[in-house]
Design a protein around this nucleic acid. Structure first.
Lengths: 216, 216
DNA sequence: GTCTATAGATTGATAGAC
DNA sequence: GTCTATCAATCTATAGAC
């Protein structure tokens, strides 16, 4: 006979975190008040301080969850790969891993992506350190793609990176789980990314009206 | 002899708008206080109310500037095209137009991109209407690309769109005008987008280890 | 664990002098 | 056009009852 809810405060704590994450992500740090979080949880604002010592601690934990969930998801997808996986397989694993973290832990991940500049100094410094794991992870993925010959020599790897990550992070703003799977989106993206969107018939259009490229 | 500074309040007004845009973009709507804006402008908070009737009006004007600068920049780049320009030329014009607006009017454009969910209801509704012009503009660009045969049949146009716009909007977070020109970035992106990043030697790798694609 | 009550600071905004 | 002075509302956080 398993004990259930011996310590119900754990549930309240998680409810508070979830509500806080949503409000932080959509309203911002300052606009999110302890009162509004408490209201949604059905308790008084003062009661929050039994679970968290301050608003700063609350947002710090939310940010930590966001950062962790992304890195953890990516690593889980890495671990599921066979030993002979190529750089392209690890690329897709990282892609799907990060996208599914953004969808599953939407509010935490959104907070992680949007809130940095609004945070109190101490929390922001901690959060910047947490991001470094994530940065290194993607650096390795792209370096391996190049090493194993999946990237043309003339492709700028830094541009490539912002290109891919810009896309991934936009997923939160448009993806609807009811209308499709992340895996299909990832496959379509990978095809576009590696092969381009141009029909074979139009390839290498050469420099028609080159002077246009110089105007700006 | 041209009159100069007959009405110096115009300068103060623009200074306030510029400072407000920066603070709104980085700190968020609620975290930006009338006092902090006034401090940076070297006046008292109460003096702002001579130029703007409320904080809501202030943020509304900032958002309007952001939306307008983007649409205006894109249209200027369209107007510079010759009559025989193709859909690919208009694509690049829109690309460079929006990117240069994001860089030139950074704080206004950032506010426009980040602040929507934090705004008071009335301001948010107005801002959503303003965005429609921008949406229609890009819809036309992508429809024309397809009509004129620049997109493969199997390419999902909606995905294509978030792909491109996700990239463009990420420009603000990494582009450094000292290290390169937007036009070069646009050219590299366009090459990657149409032709893909894969070397010709690796094209059509077929379905090696297809079961990986089904895992999630 | 959650409550009531309240302290202490800060906010958007107004009134009226200059 | 900008100032000083101030108000009412709202914020985070604490103290202590239950």
């Amino acid at each position: 006979m398993r004990k259930r809810n011996v310590n119900p405060s754990v549930d309240t704590r998680e409810t508070l975190l979830r509500l806080a994450a949503r409000s932080f992500a959509t309203q911002g740090y300052t606009a999110t008040t302890m009162r509004s979080i408490a209201d949604q949880a059905g308790i008084e604002a003062a009661s929050i301080y039994y679970h968290f010592s301050s608003k700063e601690e609350l947002v710090d934990i939310v940010m930590e969850h966001g950062a962790d969930s992304i890195v953890r998801h990516i690593n889980e997808h890495f671990d599921a790969l066979p030993a002979n996986a190529g750089a392209d397989d690890r690329f897709k694993a990282a892609l799907v891993g990060q996208m599914s973290a953004l969808i599953k832990f939407g509010d935490y991940a959104l907070a992680h992506g949007r809130l940095l500049s609004q945070l109190p100094d101490k929390v922001r410094e901690r959060q910047i350190k947490r991001r470094e794991r994530h940065q290194r992870l993607w650096t390795t993925v792209f370096d391996d793609l190049r090493k194993e010959g999946f990237l043309r020599e003339d492709v700028d790897i830094a541009l490539c990176r912002v290109f891919v990550l810009g896309f991934i992070n936009s997923v939160q703003t448009w993806f609807d789980p009811k209308k499709g799977s992340l895996d299909k989106v990832a496959d379509q993206f990978i095809t576009m990314f590696f092969e381009g969107v141009q029909p074979a018939a139009k390839r290498r259009r050469s420099g028609r009206r080159k002077e246009l490229a110089a105007s700006s």
